[in-house]
Simulated scan of single mutants.
Amino acid sequence: MSQSVYHEIGGREAVEAVVEAFYDRVLSDDRLAPYFEGMDMTELRAHQVQFISSVAGGPVDYSGADMREAHAHLDIGDAEFDAVAEHLESALRVNGVGDENVTAILDEVESLRAPVVGR
């Protein structure tokens, strides 16, 4: 993915807005909210900004934990992964990210399904 996706969607400011909208949705979802109880949401939001910036080809390297290690204790299944992806798609779209860039970002996220769900 070229760096242009990050710039096309509006750079860091846009990614931060997407992350805010994403967590608003996730934390309002009764299926997902329990996964975030007791979590440092400030730190988690910062990691998510890094992650989205990285998968969008931005000038940021994701420095969070390995995806398998970070999610192993959570017992996440495909249904939860799908719900998170749907909330991310919604957050991207509500922040004006175009179809092509939404698809590119979601394809990168989908490539992480196996380690996140523990396969």
Rank of each mutant, 00 (worst) to 15 (best):
D66F: 15
E37Y: 07
S63N: 14
H47R: 07
R93E: 04
V55T: 02
S111F: 07
G96E: 04
Y35G: 11
E43D: 01
V94Q: 03
E89H: 13
V84Q: 00
A65Y: 06
A70F: 08
A21T: 01
Q48T: 15
L112K: 01
I52S: 02
S4D: 09
V97L: 00
A70K: 14
E100C: 14
V84R: 00
I76K: 00
E16M: 01
G64D: 03
E13N: 08
D107A: 08
A65C: 13
Y6R: 13
R12T: 15
H47Y: 04
H87K: 03
E13R: 07
D82M: 01
S111L: 12
L74T: 08
A17N: 09
A21N: 10
H7V: 07
G38W: 02
E20W: 13
D78M: 04
N95A: 01
V19F: 06
Q48I: 11
S54V: 04
G58H: 07
R113C: 12
V18C: 11
A79G: 07
Y62K: 04
S111R: 08
H7L: 06
E89C: 02
G96F: 07
F51M: 09
N95E: 02
V94F: 09
D75F: 12
F51N: 00
D66M: 04
V49Y: 10
D75P: 08
V49R: 01
E43L: 07
V102I: 05
S63G: 14
D107T: 15
G11N: 13
V55W: 15
I76Q: 01
P34K: 10
V55C: 10
L92Y: 04
A104D: 07
A91I: 05
D40Y: 02
L32W: 09
A56N: 00
Q50I: 00
A56D: 01
Y6A: 15
A104C: 12
R68S: 05
E20H: 06
P59M: 03
A114C: 06
A114N: 12
R68L: 12
E37F: 12
G64H: 04
D99E: 08
A65V: 11
A72K: 15
V102F: 13
A33Q: 08
V55D: 12
G98Q: 14
E108F: 11
V109K: 12
D40Q: 00
V26Q: 05
V116H: 01
S90F: 10
D78L: 09
D29N: 12
V109N: 02
Y35I: 08
Q50S: 00
A14R: 12
E86K: 14
G96M: 15
S4K: 04
R113P: 03
R113D: 13
I105Y: 05
S63F: 10
H47G: 12
E86Y: 13
